[in-house]
Design a protein around this nucleic acid. Structure first.
Lengths: 348, 348
DNA sequence: CTGAAAGCGCTTACAG
DNA sequence: CTGAAAGCGCTTACAG
């Protein structure tokens, strides 16, 4: 201690204020934090000096000392995926209302970084975690977090049998509904391009699609090879393969809107028109599902609301509420648009 | 309420290891950080104990002590906007290669939070900042950061006259090119729906569009009211107004793809078909610019690469390189697609 | 009401 | 080569 250093941009600390005010640094801390321990006029004087010096508290020091923070972590597998960034937007908004900030990390598509990212948040004393894009294999991480008593909420995807809060929609029901809508147009020869079975959401949707078909006495023409990635590329490849195989298809049910985009690419390449030659359904209700000539029949998932609810659930856990795991199912909206209307080729 | 220490799960610290090994905590620090100060066999023993205890260093303590971090901050005005999240993806990737992490913050659309978010990164000893969505009015923040000697790189948008690194494309030239492509189809009565003039990118694009028109002896039919927001809503509203005013238009040049989406909505509502009734150009080259029947003529901005280059520029500054501000202009790609082809109504 | 002291978990000159 | 000590910037029992 003693001499002040002449750093180029040494920021003022609590000690600088204390020195200027002729009090202890503890008094400064009390004054700045509305804690008892200093009288009103001293408090005022200290605050004046703090303002004058342009003092900003060090969040690092505070966290280190208290072991707490008004901050939650949000893990994004791919920051480029609007499905999850919209949840993030809702989460940030809801958190900010409660005076929490959310620290977002992006795994760059490599799920092997999930564990290390989650630990990073814990190591920074984040008070809870919002987890997205969970896969079946992530149970070990959830076990670890639970053992460490870190509050966690699963957003949309989940790991089965984990006693942890979750918020999402009833994927199975929604999927059954959209299949039913499609069947009502008379199409019978239907292919199914689902997501990966390791995603709880994709699995539930596939179950619903199949339930819907079964109730009409049908099964997808490409059973059991219905699983794949939820990328545009995968949709394109799988649709192209179906077309090339000469399978006579009247409709394709897609596990999500992005897959449907890939199918549309394949239709364009093969000169098929939608819905005349081929009907199509998506899932998610992304913004691009409705642009100009393209009007995809889909299920609108309330993504922002999922983010907001996730935060609220998490904050209750952070506050110490102790109750059995909550499953929060939000309402969804079925959007029936032009990719399933228009002339049906089938006769039902 | 009150303080609930996560007591149950006390994480091991350097001191626990020291105690277990019968050495000082300093020795542990040396051993774990490859610093000299401990012999090889002691080092090995200490590491063994650390592993055994499941030790993870506290990033907070380290930052606080050293005042440094291998972490950079990335500010996103809106995490929901794919134009910028793709830059973020590139940035995270490039940073990770160099052993840096990037801490992403989202301002929820409120640019008043920009200053506070930027300060937050600085307060956390982030070693540099990647700034996006900068507007003309953000000069004061940049001044402050420069005074504080915080390395900064501007991504895409910039504030004029700021002696700071920047990476982007030549918006003016690209805009002139796309206007020229449109003019080559014979359309003469053209409207311009630009972004806000306070965005350096929107302004440069507008300049380029106008240059292109001027070279053909034309000006936009809606001059000088060409400015607006870069939202789908704004595109819809502005196009609807033009249509309602009965202005005879053969084409609309849009400041970006999202605006073009709104124009497409308006075309759909008014029964106009693209490009027969109305030609259309976008800008950005977003993924949704090319889905099935919609094939928008646009300029593809290398978004990921901008993120990567931004990181590299920033890391050089962090490493202490001292040279005049760099303007890094990346190549772009003109995508001429169906919204400008097809029957021209004009005669050139 | 007030202040001195200890300590969060590290790193790093500095002596031995 | 080794370890003791100081300190990063805070907070919070604790004693006066």
């Amino acid at each position: 201690m003693g001499e002040s250093r002449s750093g180029l941009t040494k920021r003022p600390t609590i000690n600088d204020i204390a020195r200027a005010a002729g009090v202890s640094s503890a008094a400064v801390s009390y004054a700045l934090n509305d804690s008892p321990g200093v009288g009103p006029e001293l408090r005022k004087r200290i605050r004046g000096i703090a303002d004058e010096l342009g003092y900003r508290p060090s969040p690092l020091a505070r966290r280190l000392k208290t072991g707490r923070s008004r901050s939650i972590g949000l893990l994004l597998a791919d920051i480029t995926n609007p499905f999850y960034t919209e949840m993030a937007g809702g989460a940030v908004e809801a958190a900010s209302v409660e005076g929490y900030e959310v620290s977002i990390s992006h795994l760059g598509g490599s799920s092997s970084r999930l564990v290390e990212a989650a630990r990073g948040h814990v190591d920074r004393y984040e008070s809870g975690l919002l987890l997205t894009s969970l896969m079946e294999g992530d149970g070990a991480l959830l076990d670890e977090l639970r053992a460490a008593r870190v509050p966690v909420v699963q957003l949309y995807r989940r790991v089965v049998d984990q006693p942890l809060d979750w918020v999402g929609i009833d994927d199975r029901s929604a999927a059954e509904e959209i299949a039913t809508v499609l069947l009502a147009t008379g199409r019978r020869r239907i292919a199914l391009l689902a997501g990966p079975p390791t995603s709880s959401a994709s699995a539930a949707r596939a179950r619903g699609f199949r339930d819907g078909l079964r109730r009409a006495g049908l099964r997808a023409v490409n059973e059991p090879d219905v699983w794949g990635e939820i990328t545009r590329r995968s949709g394109f490849d799988r649709a192209t393969a179906l077309f090339a195989a000469g399978t006579d298809i009247e409709a394709i049910i897609c596990g999500n809107d992005v897959i449907a985009l890939g199918v549309l690419d394949a239709c364009r390449d093969t000169g098929r028109s939608v819905p005349d030659d081929l009907a199509l359904t998506g899932f998610d209700g992304m913004e691009f599902a409705s642009v100009g000539p393209l009007q995809l029949t889909t299920v609108v998932v309330p993504r922002e609301e999922i983010g907001r609810r996730g935060v609220r659930l998490l904050l209750r856990r952070i506050a110490g509420e102790d109750h059995p795991p909550v499953d929060e199912m939000l309402p969804y909206e079925l959007q029936v648009r032009t990719t399933t209307t228009g002339p049906a080729t089938g006769t039902a």
